[in-house]
Design a binder for these strands. Sequence first.
RNA 1: GGGAGAUUAGCUCAGCUGGUUCAGAGCAUCUGCCUUACAAGCAGAGGGUCACUGGUUCGAACCCAGUAUCUCCCACCA
Length: 878
Amino acid sequence: MELGSRYTPLGIEEKWYKHWEDLNYFHSIPDEREPFTIVIPPPNITGVLHMGHMLNITIQDILIRRARLQGKNACWVPGTDHASIATEAKVVRMLRDQGIKKSDISREEFLNYAFEWKEKYGGLILQQLRRLGASCDWERTAFTMDEKRSEAVIKAFVDLYHRGKLYRGKRMVNWDCEAKTVLSNEEVLYKEEQAQLFNIKYISQHDPNSSIVIATQRPETIMADAAIAIHPEDPRYRHLIGTKVIIPLINRAIPIIEDTYVDIEFGTGALKVTPAHDQNDYEIGVRHKLEIVDILNDDGTLNSNAKILVGEDRFTARKKIKSLLEEANVLVSIQDYKTSIGRSERTHSVVEPKLSLQWYVDSKQLSEPALKAVMESEIEFLPDHMKNTYRHWMENIRDWCISRQLWWGHRVPAYYYGEEIFVAETKEEAIHLAIEKIGISNFNPVLLFQDEDVLDTWFSSWLWPISVFDGFNNSKDFQYYYPSNVLVTGWDIIFLWVARMIMAGYEWKNAKPFKQVYFTGMVRDKQRRKMSKSLGNSPDALELINEYGADGVRFGMLSSSPAGGDLLFDEKLCDQGRSFCNKLWNATRLIQSWKSSSIDAKDYETLVMSWMNDRITEIYIESDKLIEQSRLSEALKLIYSFIWEDFCGFYLEALKPQESSNISQEVYLNTIGYYERICTLLHPFTPFITEEIWHQLKTRQAREDCMMSSYEQIRIVDKKLLETISEVRNITTNVRELRSKHSIKMNVELPLYVQQSNIDNVLLTKGAKSLLIKMARLSDCTEVISEVAHTQSFIGMRHKYYVLMPITIDVQAEKQRLLKDIEYAQGFVGSIEKKLSNDRFRTNAPGALIEKELRKLEDGRIRLQSLKESLNSLNADL
RNA sequence: GGGAGAUUAGCUCAGCUGGUUCAGAGCAUCUGCCUUACAAGCAGAGGGUCACUGGUUCGAACCCAGUAUCUCCCACCA
């Protein structure tokens, strides 16, 4: 079948993915082979494929496909995350669009809608991963809220509770007024924002002429004030201590207290203390036993405690209170200022500090082995410096608030009976515990209630490496696959997820969850902004695949993404990937167009073939080394330029038969063999096209696929051979350069002379001469003893070459060029001589280096000598 | 306030225990080619005080110190 000159990936990619999947290649079961495991960072079920996933998935797929080719038992577990806040928000919105309010339906009804939504849209992202070529073991697809994973979550909670590492406590929390739930510290993002500072006057209760001015950014909270605090060493207000002032508008009297927390320099030096709505104020409140007045409802509106503006949203209230304060003549001034404001990671709503009863994990205890494992490189971080960030967080870890006031998620397995708390995996067990505690005669089952809250999504995610293999039941799979080889994820979730998985691993299994963490950078646009849906600066992932092909996009993602470094995404890189596929495609077409017959291979063909053979081996060795160091993009670049320059640019060009002549059967078959090896080498990076070419090259048996071929281990290379061809190519380039400079077309054949010396020259290798003649389009190639007059010369690795060209030589220009070259060569030789004559160098430098320098010196001298000869002969011509 | 990283060609970045006169690659630019696999191609070319200042060394883009600029993370500033 004739192939078109352009590679069209669309149908081909679909065909091979289906083929692989039909043959169950992605599926893994434990056997006697060495396992290679990756557990996917589960994308949110609400998510659609974006650039971050593309990068992430590409890297994981490369590693897993390579392991498979290396004969390991490769297992890549896919799955999704229930994403409690994000999903609940989506479902609430969906219901609202249908005219249903969440508050009007029961928890069960809501969950039915949510599961319905999940069934409908939740699998979408996993389908999209297939488009990229992800070779996940789909039979193992897990979901953080499926039965097994839920079981793990509940077990973990109950276990931690009974071992005293989990507790319920009343603390100041971060409240998301939009989602109406508490958030952990890690889910609050702080950013500098423009705000206003209001200076408000509080008049003394005892003396209407005396007052104190405070500064606040949130004037709507004055109704919740419990005191005004000043620094004990601030002389300005000393006389007021112990007196009371009146809160404007509501006329409630509050005391003036002293506390060293107050910064004398800031604002007026007087601080309004609002214990219910500020972390620090809460602590001051505790110290001074102040009254706590909570004026906010869960949705961020003011409640009746506020007395005024009741029912207004806090931001509306802020605007309105401004004019009220003005009217009351207590608003002294307003100034603009910048401050850092915390917003919810998911809803972006401004987070309000709020006092609340929640469940916490005592993190300090869990962090110790996890910190140790990373600092002692039991778990390897890439890039290594992420360790510092990790350590800093671990050493200052705070307790983890894990309850959320939502319905979508794992319900907290705690049951309340009056004042008593019973934590158990099931209600039956809780009843059992309750009866044990309070006696069967006193127990009334109707009074036992389960906690209404659900757990933080990350409380299921942190168990993921264990739970996907049913590790809490210590399954066979778990024993075989755990720990996974590598976790590939973005550094932005190092605390939210990575650190906690490590803690969980040591807490329950006393073993690391993964051997290595490959932190990817963030995908950014050309202006270095993080790509995000809200900014609208992210290209549509599926459209990219449609346009450039999955292989092209994979190439593009990888082309510029060292571990940890951010990646400035540029579609041009995908375009380059597509061109690369096209190049591969056309090489296939060329080989397919060859007609082979039983003629013998010519000497130069034999030479070029053995070179290609060793060169591939060399690339295997070098790319291996790079991949072992996780330098994937460099490995790809290496293979890319090898294919482009060496395989297509030189090898195929050298063997390409003239016009309609036939090619030797041996050359034909060997070429196919080399291309096969290249396909295997390249397959992890661009799986689709390599599979296609693999099958284009020859008819295959069933299950004889590139994806399942094997990555080779032979590792011997003939260095001399590689050098010889390198010299041939070097000469060819030099001749071409001369042609280009003097506008001599390729169809004009030129004679080349090689000056003999005491070193073997390239022509002594069998086949090299005819190869040279073919590649450089020479009329002949002969050895000479001395300078050849009226020629253009250049110096190769060791020898001097002359080309006789049909031109009149510009003697002056030539002389200038030579003088310049001589000057350079002299400098070169001089520097080495100087280095070698330095005693300190001779004594300090390693022997091998001195050898190398000596050889360099010799080469340099030969070169200098040749240049001088050329100059002399030029002078003789004058 | 604490910490991390970065600064190399017009742009994006390599440069992996200091050791070729070391300054690289890709893109972009320029020149010449439709040479029957590929114009998504082929053959060439130009382009940089390696942020700055000192130091260590026989030798520094690389190590050390300081300076400047940028990016990011963490932290309770009303």
